[in-house]
Design a binder for these strands. Sequence first.
DNA 1: AAAGCGGGGGG
DNA 2: CCCCCAGCTTT
Length: 365
Amino acid sequence: MPTPRLSPGEFQKRLLAWFDQHGRHDLPWQSPRTPYRVWVSEIMLQQTQVATVIDYFNRFMARFPTLDALARAPQDEVLHLWTGLGYYARARNLHKAAQVALAEHGGELPVESEEALIALPGIGRSTAGAIIAQSTGKRAVILDGNVKRSLTRLHAVPGWPGRPAVERKLWSLADYYTPAKRLADYTQAMMDFGATLCKRGQPACVACPFSDVCLAFAHGEVQHYPESKPKKALPTRQTFMLLLQDAKGRVWLEQRPPSGLWGGLWSLPQFDTQQALDDWVAMHTVAPQHEPARPVFTHTFSHFRLEISPQPVVCTTLTGVRENGVWYDLNDPPELGLAAPVKRLLTQAHAEARTFDLENAPGHA
DNA sequence: AAAGCGGGGGG
DNA sequence: CCCCCAGCTTT
């Protein structure tokens, strides 16, 4: 346990005073505050902000007013009501958990047992704590992203909260400050405090009831907490892109498979090696002429770097009909979705073609 | 364009 | 213990 900044009693007193004045007291799941309604709200609130959740929650409750109704509904309907919220595994887990509760817990959420709650799909330690505290008022601890942020600042806890050692420390702090009474209010207060005052971007430290004891604030380093996830070096992959142009200067594009990287977008034919590209050209084109390779350039994705080697080739036509492709006219471009680096290459090719035309135009010096 | 987000799952 | 993933929002 790091040095306490405040006694639990003093912390709770200040937090609840702030909550009474500035917290959220009229959220749809706060009345009536049943285990089922609190549960659904907590699942929706994972990775999603309150303002977004409210409408989804109300629609969901109108269609599935009880755990029983949810358990007996077809999964398609559950997913339909989740459309737009994202992270659809949450909806599948929620649905599955409702069926488990119906079969194994008499149609009720097992809110008397944190362990039983955590055993349900989609409910981890923090969500279980939130459900218990909010729906039963019994003592339970939460540690969501808001609470993590507030506590790392208050105690200037170093390290990325995703690391187990840091997370253990934060759980112990969260437990230390948690009261035995007014659990629903306290839990909501912790979440509201992080969401509306101790925000990630511009925390309102001037209005904060803990600014006199906050270590990060004292050091003028509020924005340094919590530390961010260490970013790892991105792996690099290579690809060879065939920039195939016909006699009219049109470029051959092929549509990507519907899912995965650049799913459904149009791209130049791609190959893992120069040899594979050459083989394809030899096999599928008529009178190909390789031009000097263009400079290699890099496109960065969230999880890897792609080194692209563009190989221009001019041919008279393709052999055989290729159904997943089009000849893309640079001067009259069809409205296709293009992968970003492909768009860049096509723009270059177009600019060069125009330069060529100008230089060779009649009357040009 | 990048970071953040709770839980699940695999190595 | 580590890493990755899902999808949308905020920065």
